[in-house]
């Protein structure tokens, strides 16, 4: 019984370590250059449409401290979207790193435009980024689902046409009977 409790505690500890480890190390990293500065982008979640991007940006050169500002996520050529505002804030865990807060709305190629300030001056530039999407539904399936209420509407209209024609005949019959009824003498 005691051994079982120890096993459960160890398993829980293992799970806590696994989940914590997953939160502290990035899923992917990317280096980029803006002006004279080499930058390191750490993705804690991959860029996906409709999901808040969990990523940090910092200098890739040790000992060089950089400031980031005026960030905007611009759609690259071929991506049908409007620019999205990006919020930058200092990362509480890593000194010199900035949290990038943005939710890309459309899949495809984007450019993270930002200004980097450091010892060599200020430079503005773009960092390319590919935003992933959920699995793509085939177009024919989209149209099939999208137009499915049309069948409901058409069936309803057909039923209503039949009901109305039957009712109209009945009304006309009743009218004819009323007209042909002999007038009773007063």
């Amino acid at each position: 019984m005691r051994n079982r409790k120890i096993h459960v505690c160890l398993s829980l500890l293992f799970l806590v370590m696994v989940f914590t480890a997953a939160g502290s190390s990035p899923l992917a990293t990317q280096t980029a250059r803006i002006g004279h500065y080499r930058l390191l982008l750490s993705f804690y979640s991959l860029p996906r449409t409709g999901q808040q991007l969990n990523m940090t940006i910092q200098s890739a050169t040790s000992g060089v401290s950089l400031r980031f500002s005026q960030a905007v996520l611009n759609p690259a050529a071929g991506t049908d979207a409007t620019p999205v505002g990006v919020a930058l804030s200092s990362d509480s865990d890593t000194p010199g790193a900035y949290d990038v807060d943005v939710t890309p709305p459309v899949r495809g190629a984007w450019l993270l435009h930002l200004t980097v300030s450091g010892p060599a001056g200020s430079f503005a530039g773009d960092i390319p980024m590919n935003v992933l999407s959920p699995p793509v539904m085939p177009t024919w399936l989209g149209w099939l689902i999208g137009l499915s209420p049309a069948s409901l509407l058409l069936t309803f209209i057909l039923m209503q046409v039949r009901w109305r024609n039957a009712r109209r005949d009945q009304v006309r019959q009743e009218l004819l009977q009323q007209v042909s009824k002999p007038v009773e003498p007063v």
Partner: peptide, 23 residues
């Protein structure tokens, strides 16, 4: 919303799920 995420913001009136909404 999903269709817009896939094909962009200029998917206007003539998209399957806009038509579904109109129906």
């Amino acid at each position: 919303n999903y269709w817009h995420e896939l094909y962009g913001i200029d998917v206007t009136f003539w998209s399957p799920f806009h038509l579904m909404g109109h129906l």
